[in-house]
Amino acid sequence: MQIFVKTLTGKTITLEVEPSDTIENVKAKIQDKEGIPPDQQRLIFAGKQLEDGRTLSDYNIQKDSTLHLVLR
Rank of each mutant, 00 (worst) to 15 (best):
A46Q: 11
K27L: 11
P38T: 14
I44S: 08
Q49K: 07
T12E: 09
Q41L: 11
L43S: 00
A46N: 09
I30E: 00
K33A: 11
V5K: 00
E51L: 03
D39L: 13
V26T: 09
P19I: 08
V17M: 12
K63I: 11
G47S: 06
I30K: 00
P37I: 06
T22Q: 08
G10Y: 04
N60F: 13
T9Q: 13
T9F: 03
I44K: 09
T55I: 13
T22I: 03
Q49Y: 09
L67A: 01
L71S: 11
P38K: 05
K63G: 12
D21G: 07
K27H: 02
I23Q: 03
Q41Y: 10
P38I: 13
T66Q: 13
P37N: 15
P19R: 04
A28L: 14
E51H: 15
I44M: 06
L56N: 01
H68N: 06
H68V: 02
L50E: 00
E24Q: 13
R72Q: 06
P38F: 07
D21Y: 06
V70P: 01
D39I: 10
Q40H: 07
T7K: 10
T7Y: 13
L15N: 00
D52I: 10
Y59D: 02
K6P: 01
F4S: 14
M1P: 02
K33W: 03
T9A: 09
D32T: 08
I36V: 07
N60T: 08
V5Y: 02
G35H: 09
A46I: 09
K27R: 09
R72A: 14
I13Y: 15
S65H: 08
G47Y: 14
T55K: 07
T12K: 09
L56T: 03
K63A: 13
L69W: 02
E16T: 10
P19L: 09
E24Y: 15
R72E: 08
F45G: 03
I61W: 01
F4Y: 07
G10I: 03
D58T: 07
D64E: 14
G53A: 08
D64S: 04
G10L: 05
T66E: 08
N60S: 14
I61L: 04
L56H: 00
I61P: 01
I3W: 00
K33I: 11
V70I: 06
L43I: 12
N25G: 13
A46P: 01
V17N: 02
G47V: 03
I36F: 06
Q62R: 07
G35M: 08
I61S: 01
L15P: 00
I3L: 06
K33T: 11
V17Q: 09
R72P: 03
S20Q: 15
I36T: 13
L67H: 01
D21E: 05
T14H: 13
L8R: 10
I44H: 06
T22W: 12
P38Q: 15
Q62A: 05
K11D: 13
D58Q: 11
G47N: 13
Q62M: 08
D32Q: 08
L56K: 00
Q2T: 11
K29M: 12
D58L: 05
Q2Y: 10
P38V: 11
Q40E: 15
L56E: 00
G47M: 11
Q31P: 02
V70M: 09
K63T: 12
T12A: 08
K27M: 05
I36L: 10
H68L: 03
D52K: 04
L8Q: 04
E51M: 03
I36A: 09
E24P: 15
P37R: 06
I23M: 06
T66I: 04
S57E: 12
S57Q: 14
H68K: 02
K33F: 05
Q41I: 10
N60G: 10
P19M: 05
G10H: 15
K63W: 09
V5E: 00
I30W: 01
Q31A: 14
I36H: 12
V17S: 06
L67D: 01
I36Y: 13
D39K: 07
L43P: 01
F4E: 05
I3M: 08
L69K: 00
L67Q: 01
P19V: 04
P19K: 07
E16Q: 11
K48I: 15
L50H: 00
G47T: 06
E18W: 05
E18G: 12
Q2M: 15
H68G: 04
D58P: 01
D58I: 03
I44F: 14
I23P: 05
M1W: 10
V5L: 12
I61R: 00
N25T: 13
I23G: 02
F4L: 08
V70R: 02
L71R: 06
S65R: 03
D52T: 12
P38Y: 06
Q62T: 09
K6F: 14
Y59V: 03
N25Y: 14
D52M: 15
N60K: 05
I3A: 01
T12M: 10
N60V: 11
G35V: 03
K29F: 11
R42V: 08
